[in-house]
Write a protein that binds this DNA or RNA. Structure first.
Lengths: 335, 335
DNA sequence: TCTATTGATTAGAGCGCTCTAATCTTGTAG
DNA sequence: CTACAAGATTAGAGCGCTCTAATCAATAGA
């Protein structure tokens, strides 16, 4: 388990350590003969530069810290995959962490990332207080995804939740729906914007926004629908539902079907996030798509710009979501 | 962005760098007075040890490399989350990678991990050839999850796919089913064992195993069922389906319902993996559960044992899956 | 022939830390 | 008052690399 060092390669190639270093970094000022000799020696010994030693000596880092709110959430998993692709292409390595959705654990996780003196950090929907983010931002560039913060040293990438909800409302209104309810995501990331967008869009159409408190889970969706069923007569029941996210929508659909209501014939349902779940033919859920790939790419680019010192002004990316129409929405009174 | 070093702390506390080092490592041989002084100085400066420098100097590493086949797959996301929890508790940091399911890219990714001189590496369902794994294993302990390899220096953690399929078959047979088909996962990880287990279990019951070639996707499940519908008369159609995984099962259910068949009244369906999908009330899929948490924990433990040099013999964990009975299976001829 | 000049190579200090061995303090026994 | 543990502290080398400045070789110009 003992690996060769640069010194070993130098000895075998009959050159100095410095020359090996130059070769390893593709310096142009090395003669072809020496370069070949060094490369061969390295090959024979199975030598590979030690990233940490390199980082220490060069006072630069190729490490990017990533803290994920919850990897189990496919949304974040997608983003991380995308980040990894971008990082590999640019020669960076990801070190990954989760904070278990607890501020305290996230704070520790953030500290761990920081202790690597990473080139930069990306936080995916963090729950730590803004002050903690500030602390991190003083040590290296920080980019936030699905979370905003007022700080001139931190870049943010978010989808426009208000616009997303508006998309859903417009779609339903366009199909003739007038009584539309929103299943609010409570304290979940982005839930507040989605609700605001819903209410604003409804008013814009001269309609009365109905909001039911829920959660971003399928169980939450079921409960919310049961409440609606209890609160409204069949004739007055909302014919359109804008769920907080896809899971929530699935729960809502279950409860509706359980109550003998058909989707979309009796009630249309729109989800949010366009998770792989929504795409399943079995569900075929109409939903709002957050451009995850773009979000990841923009977050990465913003970070790299800061890392390279190409920019000091903060950027606030607000991406436009789009509606993916599938089979859970139709005109009022049936398809 | 310039962070204080141990030297700065030492100067401020009026002690030597070595003493600061001792304090940072909780050495018992430091007087309380000095310890307090150092801690205060560190606090005031916002000092945090530099992990890479520490790693280099101590010739030990707290880095664990993790290469994931596909983070988008909830199964791996769950495992990574679990690994992260275990790692944090044990004072290790995860550096994460993906190979995009391409042997070449995986090989590069593996190299990147190796260049950190990690304490150990965990590969989740890698597609690189065994020889590449051998190369890695010569440099640090390696644990494989959802992949086997014949090597005395590599530990493996797998679920017993044969037993899992047998569980599904036994369940269906117990419900009175005689005509049971398996939707084979093709080249996907673990698919071969699942098929073998299915065939063996069927023969054990004196039944004829029907195997349809499919994929671990919902589209694959739909196609496979359509083939079955085309190949068998309604009266001879299998009444039980053992799908390759949950997605596959969902696709199968869609196709069945599309054809006017009810699940489970007409056909019972069993999935595999117990993803969050299966648990959705809307689907309520009977499925085989791989003990992901245990798998992650065992993989981590195996790795740490090797890292600590507590064991040199290889371990081959083969975990027992369990059946989660939900609503997609019932007695033949309807519930 | 001697000196620039350019390009190739190397010596050596230093990145931030750990760790061994040496040194400095005390307290205690003789 | 000396001797000596035992505990507390520090000097200094070194981890594997980078990078600046110095050295060396070879060619060109005067």
């Amino acid at each position: 388990m003992v690996r060769p060092t640069m010194e070993d390669v130098a000895a075998r190639a009959g050159v100095s350590r410095a020359l090996v270093s130059l070769v390893m970094n593709n310096s142009p000022k090395v003669s072809d003969a020496r370069r070949a000799a060094v490369l061969r020696a390295a090959e024979e010994l199975g030598y590979q530069p030690h990233v940490m030693a390199r980082s220490l000596a060069s006072r630069t880092s190729t490490v990017l810290g990533v803290m994920v709110n919850d990897l189990r959430n496919a949304f974040f998993a997608d983003i991380v995959e995308e980040l990894d692709t971008a990082a590999q292409a640019a020669g960076f390595d990801l070190i990954l962490n989760t904070g278990g959705r607890s501020p305290t654990r996230e704070w520790n996780a953030l500290h761990n990332l920081l202790s690597f003196r990473p080139a930069g950090i990306i936080l995916l929907s963090p729950v730590v207080p803004a002050s903690a983010i500030q602390v991190a931002a003083r040590q290296c560039p920080v980019v936030l995804v699905s979370r905003t913060v007022r700080s001139s040293t931190v870049d943010t990438v978010n989808d426009d939740g208000e616009a997303g909800s508006a998309l859903a409302v417009d779609h339903l209104v366009g199909l003739g729906h007038r009584r539309i309810a929103h299943l609010d995501g409570g304290g979940a990331a982005g839930a507040a914007q989605r609700r605001r967008g819903f209410e604003a869009a409804m008013r814009r159409h001269g309609l009365d926004p109905i909001v039911v408190r829920s959660e971003h889970t399928d169980i939450g969706g079921e409960k919310a629908v049961r409440e609606l069923l209890a609160a409204y007569s069949r004739a007055e029941l909302p014919t359109g539902l804008v769920a907080g996210n896809d899971f929530n929508a699935v729960g809502a659909i279950s409860a509706l079907e359980e109550a003998g209501l058909r989707v979309p014939e009796d009630v249309s349902v729109v989800g949010y996030d366009n998770t792989s779940l929504a795409a399943l033919r079995h569900l075929s859920l109409t939903t709002v798509d957050q451009p995850r790939k773009d979000m990841a790419r923009l977050a990465f680019e913003a970070l790299i710009e800061r890392v390279r010192g190409e920019r000091t002004e903060p950027v606030r990316h607000l991406l436009h979501p789009s509606l993916v129409v599938r089979a859970t929405t139709s005109e009022t009174g049936g398809a």
